[in-house]
Write a protein that binds this DNA or RNA. Structure first.
Length: 576
RNA sequence: GACUCAGUAGCUCAGCUGGUAGAGCAACAGACUCUUAAUCUGUGGGUCCAGGGUUCGAUCCCCUGCUGGGUCACCA
């Protein structure tokens, strides 16, 4: 990288780096720096009347208030921030005051990592601080951080451009309050769930992400290719069919936190890769699973937030069990006034027309139309956790027929804040019924439904050996984290949400410039002046080009001997 | 994919129905031994997203593109 690609502040930091080395200070020391305390516990444990406590802490320098021979600074460690106080004559007890005057005041910058030793005290203004007696540079930072200042909980000059925050999440985590907390909660939610399932004797497992047949859900998959086998493989859209194979194999219960991939749209509730937790427990049914889910969610909310209530946007959601339960047809009746019970496909098509639903076309079967009506008129209205039960059979090819009505299935979805959070079944374990349902999906696919499921013959073979009665559930983890942390976009709960790749401006290589006879040291100046491609130089007046690059030479005080116009003309003449 | 808004200093943002740019913080130089958005004095820092067009002249007006946000559509 050329100096010309750097900002003024970056150049200064690199010069400071050199100066530190010249002073014999290693800006990137290898040795362990022993830390005895953290910002948080120092504040929590401080007592004004206790004897002085010596501490050794380390962190990133995040602010400096220099007042001549004494200074205050902020250190940010993994737990938070703490103020340090540095008095020149206590840091530098001898004649040489360079560590304070030169290193601390001039060569250190916001963003550098330092380690300090000293004692804890309370300042006249009442802030618990560390009185520094030793200071050591642990890592020099070469890029200036955005400066966000806080006063009374209000952020000033907040770093909030979503594009920059997501592309450079590391910066977001450093400077913006609350970002790390969201991800700590995310981690805790996973931990609480693992504890809950493990306590019940269920086993965490891992199943293939590269699948020959993308089963277990309806979605467009990502396709990849395995060279040795010379076969196309799919990134999984769900892990359901593999987990059921394990129930066939004799596990009491299995669960997986599964990264799934769906090649579909992106918005505030969808990311192409997302995390789903799936759990399957033998001998249970979907009614048991509703009770179990209520307990689980209540526990998560309590452990993560200390209360069952959480505020999301304008809504306050209460995860206290039990939750309302209503069948899908009752929900539609309640919200639209139409009772679809025992209605024929044609009658339902007419209802769709009456409801002015334009998206419906002739490829839609009965089940899909019912699902559309629900999605349009009901789904968004369930803010508090609500179980929607007994889905039409056409939409649920992996679900057992309802024990009282063979047009329906034993399925529920849990709606929270107007969105689906979980989806669960009494799992279909009749191998012949399952085969028939797959055949139905195949027909839908032939009719033009590009989301219909593929047939997985090995899964059918497993079912033929016998799968005990089992209930399974899938929970959208990203949405769960959004709910538990009060976030309204999925990007806020994913460290690195999917973005378009950053594009670099096209550049011709150095060798191409050298071929024209451009001296090596002048190439960066051409780039700085905006000539990244030979083509950029081709049409330009040699006089202007010469002036442009000589201007850069002068402006940045590079001290190069300027080329003559004839030389520049010669370069341009060689462009093919 | 459609519509819409935005892109100006390291960060947050100003910029008058067109005359090549300003503030605060950050940086640099200086003052200051209990400050805390420290303060005070001074200084530097910009391909105004990119490329076309209109114009004597474009950060500003028009077109195209890129990137992001929002809404809708599609989709768990």
């Amino acid at each position: 990288m050329s100096l010309l690609d750097l900002s003024e502040q970056e150049i200064l930091r690199r010069e400071s780096l050199k100066e530190l080395r010249a002073m014999g200070i290693d800006p990137y020391p290898a040795a362990e720096y022993v830390v005895t305390d953290y910002s948080q516990n120092i504040r929590d444990e401080f007592k004004d009347d206790a004897p002085r406590k010596e501490v050794s802490i380390a962190g990133r320098l995040m602010g400096r208030r220099v007042m001549g021979k004494a200074s205050f600074a902020e250190i940010q460690d993994s737990k938070g921030r703490i103020q340090i106080y540095i008095a020149r004559d206590e840091l530098c007890t001898g004649e040489n005051k360079d560590l304070y005057n030169v290193v601390f005041k001039r060569l250190l910058d916001i963003g550098d990592f330092i380690g300090v030793k000293g004692y804890v005290f309370r300042t006249q203004m009442g802030e618990i601080s560390v009185h520094v007696s030793e200071l050591k540079l642990l890592c020099k930072s070469l890029k200036p951080l955005p400066i966000v200042k806080y006063k009374d909980g209000v952020a000033y000059d907040k770093f909030e451009d979503p594009e920059l925050r997501y592309r450079q999440r590391y910066v977001d985590l450093i400077v913006n309050d609350g970002v790390k907390e969201t991800f700590l909660k995310r981690s805790k939610i996973f931990r609480v769930m693992r504890d809950f399932f493990d306590h019940n004797g269920y086993t965490e497992v891992e199943t293939p992400i590269l699948q020959p047949i993308p089963g277990g859900a309806s979605a467009r998959p990502f396709i990849t290719h395995h060279n040795t086998l010379d076969v196309d493989l799919y990134l999984r859209i769900a892990c359901e069919l593999y987990l059921k194979r394990l129930i066939v194999g004799g596990f009491e219960g299995v669960y997986e936190f599964s990264k799934n991939f769906r090649n579909e749209g992106m918005d505030r509730t969808h990311n192409p890769e997302f995390t789903c937790m799936e759990l399957y427990v033998q001998y249970k049914d979907y009614k048991w699973m509703m009770n179990y889910t209520e307990q689980l969610l209540e526990k998560i909310a309590t452990e993560v937030n200390g209360t069952t209530k959480v505020k999301v946007g304008d809504n306050e959601i209460d995860f206290k069990a039990p939750y309302k339960r209503i069948t899908m047809l009752d929900a539609i009746k309640e919200k639209t006034g139409y009772d679809l019970t025992d209605k024929s496909e044609e009658e339902i098509r007419q209802v769709c027309k009456d409801l002015k639903m334009e998206a419906i076309d002739n490829t839609f079967g009965k089940g899909k139309m019912i699902d559309e009506i629900f999605g349009e008129f009901c789904e968004g209205t369930y803010i508090q956790p609500t179980f929607i039960t007994d889905y039409p059979i056409e939409m649920s090819p992996l679900t057992k027929k309802h024990r009282d009505n063979d047009k329906l299935t034993e399925r529920f979805e849990l709606m929270v804040n107007g969105k689906e959070l979980a989806n669960a079944y009494s799992e279909l374990n009749d191998p012949l019924d399952q085969e028939g349902r797959f055949q139905d999906q195949l027909r839908l696919s032939e009719k033009g439904d590009d989301e219909a499921m593929f047939i997985d013959q090995d899964f059918l073979r497993a079912l033929q050996y016998g799968m005990p009665p089992v209930s399974g559930i899938g929970i959208g983890m990203d949405r769960l984290v959004m709910l538990m942390t009060g976030q309204t976009t999925i990007q806020e709960v994913l460290f690195f949400p999917q973005m378009r790749p950053e594009k670099m401006a096209p550049k011709d290589s150095d060798s191409k410039f050298l071929e024209l006879g451009v001296p090596n040291e002048w190439i960066p100046l051409l780039r700085k002046a905006g000539y990244n491609l030979l083509a950029d130089m081709k049409e330009v007046n040699p006089q202007k080009l010469q002036m442009d690059i000589c201007g850069v030479n002068k402006k940045f005080k590079l001290g190069l001997t300027n080329p003559k116009v004839e030389e520049v003309t010669d370069w341009i003449s060689k462009i093919g």
